[in-house]
Design a protein around this nucleic acid. Structure first.
Lengths: 92, 92
DNA sequence: TTTTTATATAAGTGAATTATTATATAAGTA
DNA sequence: TACTTATATAATAATTCACTTATATAAAAA
């Protein structure tokens, strides 16, 4: 439980989840939202993935991420209370 | 939101909350539950207090802690999903 | 008043965290 | 095949974290 909560207790990772509320997002879009380097985004996504909170779908050169359908109730409640973040999508 | 989640995303602090589910607990009881030093307990309690998740009630030399009546919904859900921890109480 | 007891604070240490830059991989395009 | 593009990994530096031991504070007991 501490492990999963740790995965979501970071401002940048909460922003990632907020972006994903509406559905699948291409990894490249997150760089502008978080305003951190591409490797930093990659590392944060990895943490959420390893915690089972998001899943990835490779599509050629790109990787698309979405929220896992099944969440622990205490994680779901956190997601529910995040305000959605809107952002400009790349054309992939 | 990240700040409050950070406060609860630690095994020892989750144990403190689990102990507090049934009601007020004297600070001294936590040392045996967590099996860490008294100053370490004091520091962890401080973090939960500063996050507004627990409140303290001084009683002479002792300090009693309990869960705050009002919790953010996403914090309340976490507390709800903690298994209670039973422990030996001091005679204070 | 001195001693004991419960808790807090200070200082220090090792481990974990979160970025960075540089480089690797791997798919798509000219 | 060579070049570009999207993402991942490696190495590293700065910061934060969660303990420790030593000491301070403050209330109760002797």
């Amino acid at each position: 439980m501490a492990k999963q909560l740790k995965a979501v207790s970071d401002p940048n990772r909460l922003k990632l989840l907020a972006c994903l509320k509406k559905g699948e997002v291409c990894a490249c879009d997150f760089v502008d939202v978080l305003n951190i380097s591409q490797p930093a985004v990659s590392q944060q996504l990895k943490k959420l993935k390893e915690a089972g909170i998001i899943v990835e779908r490779p599509a050629g050169t790109w990787k698309h991420y979405r929220l896992n359908d099944v969440q622990q109730p205490y994680i779901q409640t956190i997601i529910d209370h995040l305000d959605e973040i809107s952002f400009i999508r790349c054309d992939c």
